[in-house]
Design a protein around this nucleic acid. Sequence first.
DNA 1: CTCCTTATTGCAAATAATAACAATAGTTAT
DNA 2: ATAACTATTGTTATTATTTGCAATAAGGAG
Lengths: 139, 139
Amino acid sequence: MSCIPELTKKLRARGYRITPQRLVILQALHEGGHLSPLQIYDRVHETGISEPTVYRTLDFLYSNGIVSIATRGNGHMTYELSGDSHHHIICRSCGDQLEIASQLLEPAISLIERETGYQLIASHLTFLGLCPKCNSISK
Amino acid sequence: MSCIPELTKKLRARGYRITPQRLVILQALHEGGHLSPLQIYDRVHETGISEPTVYRTLDFLYSNGIVSIATRGNGHMTYELSGDSHHHIICRSCGDQLEIASQLLEPAISLIERETGYQLIASHLTFLGLCPKCNSISK
DNA sequence: CTCCTTATTGCAAATAATAACAATAGTTAT
DNA sequence: ATAACTATTGTTATTATTTGCAATAAGGAG
């Protein structure tokens, strides 16, 4: 969806700067997929990047729609590159995860955009639910 | 949606226990609306409830669908009672919040439930977007 | 009502995340 | 290239959140 040159252009246009730290963290996310802040720190701290920078960079990338929060189970967040749009359901009982194709949500999203005037950034939503197995047990 | 007697019944059926601490925290959420863990702790610590208990109780209530995460701006989460179902859009640029009626999402949610077999817990979703004002500026 | 089982709590300590601020280094213009 | 402007970084210190474990108490059985 957004390759590096595109990204840098967009960010610079907004007055932000492209730093080695940001590129390294993007790279780590590219290689690692879903990662928590500390997992990212583990991967990059040998280059001299500090912990606060990891957190700040993730906030920054998140606010700019470049990474998304992939899961928020029990407070622990993991981040991943936005891009390929899909969503997750997590079973609140067994923790199982399932991907949802983005098409299932597209109608609702454009409806919301029309109703509210907002432009949504909805590349990775996470739903909480009960998987069929746990659902039948809990009855 | 779920009054206290109902709740206690449901939780006990699952093998959990109803403690004074849990009731006090529920009460605080009932009175306070959106609250962060530490805001809740401020409200209840005079009753002797410890900080870890606040966090653990919120996790517990969240896993059981009794409270929802209301916002996750910059990592700071606030919790609120589930129940009256509505959703939020937060403008990633100015932070403005808007409520979305749950009806807008209901079709998509039941579609997902049919497709996946999961039963969704989707009383409070948070979307990130750009409000009309910020959207026009950033062009 | 009393005993038993074990979920839940508080305490103390460890880890994760954020804030403040001076120093550094992208970026644009000269 | 060089200079100037200021976003971004690292350091240090602070605050927030989680963990381990012994002590407590909720809820069911007798």
